[in-house]
C-alpha cells in the first residue's frame, strides 16, 4: 500500500512537471534566455562570425523572439543542431524553438507532433550546371551525373522529377554542401542539385561564378519556417505573431530607423496596434504591449533582415522572388493585427 502511494505521488509529480513544462513562456522567462536550435552552419542562414556571434536569416528569427519575450535580442542560447538531432532536441525540450531551414511537411507537422509557426523563407529545389555543358533547361538533363546530398528530401524530389519526365540520371552521393562544391568543381558530376538558395550561395563562392548557371526549373516546394512543440499554443502564437510582426512591419513601412518615431503614435491604427500604442495586443499573450516594437528593433523588419543576410547586396545575392510581400507579387502575407 505504501509503495502504491509512493508511486502514485511520483506519477502525480511527473504529471505536474509535465504541466509546468508546457508553459514554455514561463520557462524562458525563468531562465532569462531563449534556447534556440539553429543549423551548425548554413551560409546566410546561420553562421558564427569571427567573434563567435551567430548571424544570419534564421538566427534573426531567434533574436526577434528573444527581444519580444525578454526585451533583449542577445538573450539567446544558440544550440547548433544537425539534421539528425534537430527534431529530438525540440521534442525533448532541450530547445524552445527550432529555426533551422526546416521544410514544413505533413509528417513533420502531424506525425512528429510539431507546430510550424509560419514560413520565413519559400525555397525550392533547383539545378546548377556548368555553362560549358550548353544546357538551358532541366528537361535536357537526361543521362547526367548529379551530385546530391544523401538522406534529404532533395534526393526523393530528384527521383520523382526524373521519373515523371521519363529521364535517367546517375547520382553521385555526397554528405555535405562543402563536399558537393569540391566534387562539382572537380567535375565529378555535371549537375549539382539542392535548394535554390543553397545553389545561389554556393555559386557565389566559386572563383568563376559567371561560368555556372542555375536552370530555371524549380522542382519542389520547400517552405522553410520556425517550429515549436505541439501542445503549447500560447508559445506557438508568440513565435507566429513575432514572425508576422516582422513581415507586417515591412508592409507598413516600419523600419529600424523610423520605428521610434512611429511608436509615438501615427494616423494608421494598424501600425499603432502593432507597435503597442493602442489596442493592448501584447497582453493577450502575456507579453508587454511593445513586444512587436522590440522584435522589429532587434534586426529590422523582414525586408531589412533579408537584405542584410541573404539579399542581393550580400555575396549570397538572393532575389526576393516568392519571398516578396503579397503586394509585390510574392507570398508574404501577414495576418491583420486586430
Amino acid at each position: 500500500m505504501k509503495t502504491f502511494t509512493f508511486f502514485g505521488a511520483l506519477t502525480a509529480a511527473g504529471l505536474a512537471a509535465g504541466v509546468v513544462q508546457a508553459a514554455t513562456l514561463d520557462d524562458v522567462r525563468a531562465r532569462g534566455n531563449l534556447s534556440c536550435g539553429i543549423s551548425t552552419g548554413l551560409a546566410g542562414f546561420s553562421a558564427p562570425d569571427a567573434n563567435g556571434v551567430w548571424q544570419g536569416f534564421d538566427v534573426a528569427v531567434c533574436r526577434a523572439v528573444a527581444a519580444a519575450v525578454l526585451g533583449d535580442p542577445m538573450a539567446v542560447t544558440f544550440v547548433p543542431t544537425t539534421g539528425q538531432t534537430r527534431f529530438t532536441a525540440l521534442s525533448s525540450g532541450e530547445i524552445d524553438l527550432l529555426a533551422r531551414n526546416t521544410t514544413w511537411t505533413f509528417s513533420r507537422d502531424v506525425d512528429l507532433k510539431f507546430t510550424f509557426a509560419g514560413i520565413n523563407y519559400y525555397d525550392g529545389q533547383g539545378f546548377m550546371v556548368s555553362r560549358e555543358l550548353g544546357v538551358s533547361s532541366a528537361r535536357e538533363l537526361d543521362g547526367a551525373t548529379i551530385c546530391i546530398q544523401t538522406g534529404t528530401t532533395t534526393e526523393l524530389n530528384l527521383a520523382d522529377y526524373f521519373r515523371a519526365n521519363n529521364m535517367s540520371y546517375e547520382p553521385v552521393p555526397i554528405e555535405t554542401n562543402a563536399e558537393a562544391q569540391q566534387q562539382y568543381l572537380a567535375g565529378a558530376c555535371d549537375v549539382y542539385t539542392t535548394d535554390a538558395s543553397g545553389l545561389a550561395s554556393t555559386r557565389a563562392t566559386f572563383a568563376d561564378p559567371e561560368n555556372h548557371i542555375l536552370l530555371p526549373e524549380i522542382i519542389s516546394k520547400e517552405p522553410l519556417g520556425p517550429l515549436v512543440r505541439h501542445g503549447d499554443d500560447e508559445w506557438a502564437d508568440i513565435v507566429k505573431w513575432t514572425l508576422y510582426a516582422l513581415i507586417a512591419a515591412e508592409e507598413y513601412g516600419i523600419t529600424s530607423q523610423n520605428i521610434d518615431e512611429l511608436a509615438r503614435g501615427t494616423d494608421n491604427p494598424e501600425i499603432n496596434r502593432l507597435l503597442g500604442v493602442e489596442g493592448g495586443l501584447g497582453q493577450m499573450f502575456r507579453l508587454e504591449n511593445d513586444w512587436a516594437r522590440r522584435a522589429i528593433s532587434a534586426g529590422g523588419n523582414y525586408g531589412e533582415i533579408f537584405s542584410s543576410t541573404i539579399g542581393e547586396s550580400t555575396p549570397i545575392g538572393l532575389a526576393r522572388g516568392l519571398n516578396a510581400q503579397w503586394t509585390q507579387g510574392g507570398l508574404l502575407y501577414a495576418m491583420p493585427f486586430r
Binding site: S39, T40, G41, L42, A43, G44, F45, S46, A47, P48, D49, A50, G56, V79, P80, T81, T82, Q84, T85, A89, T176, A178, Q181, Q182, S201, T202, A204, T205, F206, T314, P315, I316
Partner: peptide, 26 residues
Amino acid sequence: VVFIGLLDPIGLSNSIRADTNWNGIY
C-alpha cells in the same frame, strides 16, 4: 561529436564555411 552538434574543430570548419567570407574554403 560533430554529429550531435558540438562544435569541435571539424564542426567549426563547417560553421566557418557558412560565413559568406569563407564559404568555399576547404
